[in-house]
Design a protein around this nucleic acid. Structure first.
Length: 224
DNA sequence: ATGCAGATCCGCT
DNA sequence: GCGGATCTGCATC
């Protein structure tokens, strides 16, 4: 780590969804495990899920249930949900009621060995090849496995107060020209209008991103 | 590099 | 009942 990291506060996270998603790129997610050790990863990819109109969002049409309640809580509250019978995804609520940012990929910067163990422990069958660092957290459910984030232990947490999960700024900045803005992933059934919205953000050239959008990257390089 | 099937189960209709 | 903000392995180009 380059310099002393500052913990993010309520004021830092008091942002509407899209601005929060962009703001979070380059920030650090920190996780304290039961044994006291701390894992850290830099956020390199995230996605917005808006409330109300957004057909891909769990809060579509203002739908509020016991499950998605954290999306309606103050900005900086965690929303973890269980998906596909075996995975979790990790979100951070933003300013608008019902809106949240899904973390899709992290660049591991501390505790890689522990992350590897946590990932391996979740595998059904033994790994054929050892996990490479870039494969530890390059997907929304992978980062949950590597950080031991489950609905059970990390849902509905205030990231500005928690002792087990928080955000940091270590001074690292992602340049605006290095932010790729493109379509979200995995929401094919949500209706074309919303599938196409540019609500995913990632750091250009970072090898820890889950899925690149080469068409968008090409357009960016052409308009230099 | 891209694509598809299968695993697997909670929460909502 | 049913579908899903995913991942892995295997097939094919």
């Amino acid at each position: 780590m380059s310099q002393a990291a500052r913990r993010l506060t309520k004021a830092d996270l008091h942002l509407p969804c899209k601005r929060q998603a962009v703001y979070l790129l380059g920030k650090i997610l920190a996780r304290r495990l039961d044994d006291g050790s701390v894992l850290r990863g830099r956020i390199v990819e995230d996605e917005c899920y808006l409330g109300g109109e957004d057909k891909a969002s769990h809060s579509y049409n203002g739908r509020q249930t016991a499950g998605n309640e954290p999306m309606y809580m103050p900005a900086g509250t965690t929303y973890v949900y269980f998906i596909y019978g075996m995975y979790c995804c990790f979100n951070i609520s933003s300013l608008e009621p019902g809106a949240a940012v899904l973390l899709r990929a992290l660049e591991p910067i501390q505790g890689q060995e522990q992350m590897g163990k946590l990932r391996a422990a979740k595998q059904k069958s033994p790994l054929k090849s050892p996990l490479k660092e870039k494969d530890l957290c390059n997907g929304p459910s992978k980062l949950c496995m590597s950080f031991n984030i489950t609905k059970n232990n990390c849902n509905k947490i205030d990231l500005t107060e928690s002792e087990v999960l928080w955000l940091e700024d270590d001074g690292f900045e992602v340049e605006k020209k290095d932010i790729v803005t493109c379509k979200r992933v995995g929401i094919g059934s949500a209706g074309e209008e919303w599938v196409g919205k540019p609500l995913r953000f990632y750091v250009l050239g970072n090898p820890h991103v889950s899925k690149r959008d080469k068409k968008t990257e090409k357009k960016m390089s052409e308009s230099d």
